[in-house]
Simulated scan of single mutants.
Amino acid sequence: MHARSEPAAAPGEPDAHQRPPLIREFLLVAGLFLVYKLGRQLATGHTAEAFRNAHRVWHLERVAHLPDEVSVQSALLHGQTLVHLANTYYATVHFPATLAFLVWLYVRRPAHYVWARRVLAVVTAAALVLPFTFPLAPPRMLAGTGLVDTARVYGPSVYGPPAGDHLSNQFAAMPSLHFGWALMVAVGLIAATRSRRRWLWLAHPLVTLLVIVGTANHYWLDALAATAMLGLALAVIRPPRPTAGTARRSPDRVPAPAPVLVGAGR
């Protein structure tokens, strides 16, 4: 009696045996986003310390001769349309882009999906711990810098007055999960695809970086801290090795980077 063999997956199709159960993954990812939102509330308070740390970060950046955030914002303020698009990008791209990234990996690259989900979970958990030890006011709240709260002045804004904002902790600027997640989206798509144009996905974290700095929601060091956390997670959680089937996939079956809309929180 011969053992029954399973049909091989067609080129370009994911291996169904590698794909985790949909309901379980939905609950895990939903839990990740919920922890992201609720976990920040646990670190609220420490306002005075957050402003002291903000002055320290601002001074450290000047000592390190990092580019002035004011110069980036000045470029956005040349036109009201541009700054409005930057605020819209900050408010609307962060979560949808990350969710679309995970959904695509789940459907097309299940093994890479598991890897990416684990990396995002580790980075998010680590990012939620830092505000307990280093609360930080964002540059838009720091007087004497010349920066403008572009979301409040030009809209749209995702934040209310800090004292009455019960949906987010505005004194948890470091690290920037806006940038950390955007960078992971680019890294994940570059690792999971073989298109020659896949490196264009780096435009997403680059635009995100300019947006979070130009809108005065984050310092350069917030993005550097997120990059360091992501780098450590990637060093520990290694991506799956490409299979023979993955290597044979033709580039035209792999989605090319779509144009980045200038218009995602932290």
Rank of each mutant, 00 (worst) to 15 (best):
E69A: 12
E69V: 00
V70F: 12
V70N: 09
S71M: 14
Q73P: 09
Q73E: 06
Q73S: 06
Q73W: 14
A75P: 00
A75G: 00
L76C: 07
L77P: 00
H78S: 09
G79L: 04
G79M: 01
Q80R: 15
T81K: 10
L82N: 01
L82V: 11
L82G: 03
L82R: 12
H84Q: 15
L85G: 03
A86Y: 01
Y89N: 01
A91D: 13
A91E: 10
A91Q: 14
T92P: 00
V93I: 11
V93T: 12
H94C: 08
H94P: 03
F95D: 10
P96Y: 13
T98S: 05
L99E: 05
F101E: 04
V103A: 12
W104N: 03
W104G: 09
Y106F: 13
R108P: 00
R108F: 09
R108C: 06
P110D: 13
P110I: 09
P110A: 09
Y113T: 09
Y113G: 03
Y113D: 02
V114P: 04
W115T: 05
W115V: 05
R117A: 04
R117I: 07
R117T: 08
R118V: 04
R118F: 03
R118N: 10
V119K: 00
V119D: 01
V119I: 10
L120C: 08
V122Y: 09
T124R: 08
T124D: 12
A125K: 11
A126E: 14
L128C: 04
L130H: 09
L130I: 15
P131E: 04
P131G: 01
F132I: 10
T133C: 11
T133F: 09
T133E: 02
F134N: 03
F134W: 13
F134C: 11
P135K: 08
P135N: 09
P135M: 02
P135G: 06
P135L: 13
P135E: 12
A137V: 12
A137G: 10
P139H: 06
P139D: 03
R140W: 10
M141P: 01
L142A: 02
L142K: 00
G144E: 02
